[in-house]
Design a protein around this nucleic acid. Structure first.
Lengths: 193, 193
DNA sequence: ATAATAAAACTAACGCTGTTAGTCAAGGAG
DNA sequence: CTCCTTGACTAACAGCGTTAGTTTTATTAT
């Protein structure tokens, strides 16, 4: 091995650090290279392209989000699990905004492996719904609904759409989650009948 | 007046055409200029910057979305109005995907006037909810919820998150809307009590 | 220890991006 | 007819990601 002991993961980690510190749009080849005390061209000994790097970062972001959600539902069931999951999702968006931005910016990229990874977020949600007596298809539909609510809410708050009206944002979110649980119970009753 | 009768609105319109034809990321100063049979630098006689142009495009996109929603709820009330609104929103995302992408990409930009315009989308939604007996604050919360559902759903579908599971996407959306109406009725009952 | 090898750094350059400065030509107003 | 504004132009800059080709450096084998 030659060089400065720099590894591919080290580059990714430095990129994440840069993003969390100075924002997603501050990530550039030259800026990242400077942080690593390297010239921009040398980055290409470790990564294939900046796009691939961004994909790698997205993998990390998705894994972190998934971890937070899985941890949140531990030991809980039904409404409690759903509420905890939704809160964990929200907290992630708030505490690591730049990392969450990476996930928000995914629609722009078209990458099969990444889309599959994004599907990983499905699992904890399905787990949270497992306490409800629902068919697999129904559960899948409902999982999409919950994901839409959480993702949509954070997107809009990030965009500043909620800023101009003087009613509590957290209350709106709680209401949304409550509505989802209502739907869950209604669907469960429908299934049982 | 000198030049080729080119106006600021003409530039914006050409940019929208370019975006709808070749995609949001195909929009560049030189590409747009070429379409107008002009050099890139000459664009700056009509627009202040590419960012300002993008903002202008976003204004248009938001106005169009709002128009579609307002038209959809015409003559309808309560559940019918909400369903029609949600369908119109979904259809807009499907029929003019690149224009909708512009709205999706808004979070990245921080622009006060634009955020205010984004608030315009509130109006038709509030109108759709007007048939329900709800306090103003409650209505505002619920408007946020519906917007989150619609926006979140299209975001995720755009991102390809729904692609890997063989259950109908439109059914998931219909379920989400049904759930929202359930919440609406529940909140109305709460208010009346 | 020294020579060979492979990894990782380097410099230089290309084509792309948005943008500014300075110039020139053409149409309308006094 | 002249003035002057308007909108086009050319030339250039700094930044971006990226590639090719070269040199350094660290490890391994002799």
């Amino acid at each position: 091995m030659a060089g400065k002991g720099l590894t591919r993961d080290g580059v990714v980690r430095e990129a994440i650090g840069l993003i969390e510190e100075r924002g997603l749009q501050a990530l550039s080849a030259r800026e990242l290279a400077a942080r690593l005390r390297i010239r921009a061209a040398s980055l290409y000994n470790h990564i294939k392209s900046m796009d691939e790097l961004r994909t790698q970062i997205a993998f990390y972001a998705i894994a972190e989000l998934r971890r937070a959600q899985t941890a949140a539902i531990g030991g809980k069931a039904r409404g409690g699990a759903v509420t905890a999951l939704a809160e964990a999702y929200y907290r992630f968006g708030k505490e690591r905004p730049e990392l969450y931005r990476v996930i928000l910016s995914l629609p722009m990229v078209k990458n099969d492996a990444l889309q599959a990874a994004a599907g990983d977020i499905v699992e904890p949600i399905m787990a949270a719904l497992s306490g409800y007596a629902l068919g697999e298809d129904r559960k899948m539909h409902l999982q999409r609904v919950l994901r839409s609510i959480m993702h949509g809410f954070l997107s809009q708050e990030e965009a500043g759409c909620f800023r101009h009206f003087p009613v509590e944002v957290s209350e709106s979110y709680a209401l949304a989650v409550r509505g989802f649980i209502l739907l869950l119970e209604s669907e469960e009753a429908e299934t049982r009948k």
